[in-house]
C-alpha cells in the first residue's frame, strides 16, 4: 500500500459518502444517473468476485464490502424506494448504457491477462469502470444547473482514479516487473473522460459560481 493508493481509495470512499449524503440530505436523487450507479454496481460485483475466496487484508475486504453494498443500496433506492424513486430524472437519464456493457464484454474477451473466468471478469470490470461515468456526465449536461453535492460527488469520483495512476507509476518504479497495462490504459481513459468536467468544476470554483456544464 502506498500513499497514492490510500489517497485514491479514501477519495473514492469519500465520493460514495457524498453521494449518500446528497440522497439522504436532499431526499432526492435529481441530477444522479441511475444508469451510472447500475454500471458501478456491476463493476464492483464483477471485480470483487474474490471477496470470499482470496483474503488479502481486512482493509481490502472491508472496502470491497463497502463499495458493493453502497452501490447496490443506491441502485435499490433509486429504483424502488417510494420517496426517492420519484425524484429520479428518468426522462433525462437516457444513455444506452447496455452498449457500454456490451463493448466491455467484447474487450474483456479480447484483451485480458489470462483467459480464466476471474481474469476476464476482472478485465470487464476495469473496462466498464472506465466508461461508467458517461451516463452521469451526459445527465449533468442535460440537467443544466448541478447541485453542489452532485458536483462534488463526480469530482471526487474522477479524482480517485487520477491518484491510482500515480500509484501505478510509483509501483512501476519501486516494484520490479510490475505491469498492469490494462489498468493503466483504462485508468487513463477514465480520468481523461473527466477532463472537461474538471475544467468547468475549477472555473466554477475559481469564480465562486454555480457549476454550469455547456449543453
Amino acid at each position: 500500500m502506498n500513499i497514492f493508493r490510500l489517497a485514491g481509495d479514501m477519495t473514492h470512499l469519500f465520493s460514495v459518502l457524498v453521494l449518500l449524503l446528497k440522497i439522504y440530505a436532499t431526499k432526492s436523487c435529481s441530477g444522479i444517473s441511475l444508469k451510472t450507479q447500475e454500471l458501478y454496481a456491476l463493476v464492483f460485483l464483477t471485480r470483487y468476485l474474490d471477496l470470499f475466496t482470496d483474503f488479502i487484508s481486512v482493509y481490502n475486504s472491508v472496502m470491497k464490502v463497502v463499495f458493493i453494498s453502497s452501490s447496490v443500496a443506491i441502485v435499490w433506492c433509486m429504483r424502488y424506494h417510494p420517496l426517492t424513486r420519484r425524484t429520479y430524472d428518468k426522462d433525462l437519464d437516457t444513455f444506452r448504457h447496455y452498449i457500454l456493457v456490451g463493448v466491455s464484454i467484447i474487450l474483456a474477451l479480447l484483451f485480458h491477462d489470462r483467459f480464466t473466468f476471474r481474469e476476464v471478469f476482472w478485465a470487464f470490470s476495469i473496462y466498464l469502470e472506465a466508461v461508467a461515468i458517461l451516463p452521469q456526465l451526459v445527465l449533468l449536461q442535460r440537467s443544466g444547473n448541478v447541485d453542489n453535492l452532485t458536483g462534488q460527488y463526480v469530482f471526487f469520483l474522477g479524482a480517485y482514479r487520477a491518484f491510482y495512476i500515480l500509484n501505478w507509476i510509483y509501483r512501476y518504479f519501486t516494484e520490479n516487473h510490475y505491469s498492469r497495462w490494462i489498468s493503466w490504459l483504462a485508468g487513463f481513459v477514465q480520468t481523461a473522460l473527466y477532463a472537461d468536467f474538471f475544467y468547468y468544476y475549477f472555473v466554477s470554483w475559481k469564480n465562486n459560481a454555480k457549476l454550469q456544464l455547456p449543453a
Binding site: D50, N60, I182
Partner: peptide, 10 residues
C-alpha cells in the same frame, strides 16, 4: 508479468 500477481488493488 502482471498475471501472477494477486489483484491487491480495489
Amino acid at each position: 508479468s502482471s498475471s501472477d500477481q494477486p489483484k491487491d488493488e480495489l
